[in-house]
Amino acid sequence: MRAGWLSFCLMVGLFVCSAALAQSAKNYVFDDAAKEATFRELIGELRCPKCQNQSIADSNAELAVDLRERTYQMVQEGASKQEVIDYMVARYGDFVHYQPPVTVATSILWWGPLGVLIIGGIVVVLRVRQQRHREVEWSAEEQAQLDALRQRQKGENE
């Protein structure tokens, strides 16, 4: 019963959220489906400088509304996706785009994971090799023990 209520609340919550999200782009009318697609992609990719962790599609901050409006104007006037991104980055910096450009400062974001993977791979390979090549050393006593066991087995088999 309780689980039922919980899922019901979740469902209502999700419904309200998606309705709110849909609203952010509702008022924009396009004469061209391709332009609308570009616009929707852009507002999902551009980050609201005021609200830190939301795209301008998700945020209802005044600034996000303004940036959406400007994006709409530019797309309607025929600007390409890259033109709008360049326009925003020129004013708000790399911060405004969720996909950071490859520069010296951001190189760790792009190559860091790959570097960690390579280092991990090298460590694993080295370890495996080391184990495989390890010489098995016997003491004389152990050798004698082994010989005795073998002898016994031989005797049992016969």
Partner: peptide, 9 residues
């Protein structure tokens, strides 16, 4: 302060 962004201008 994460809210302090350097200006692109």
């Amino acid at each position: 302060d994460p809210t302090e962004l350097s200006s692109a201008l």
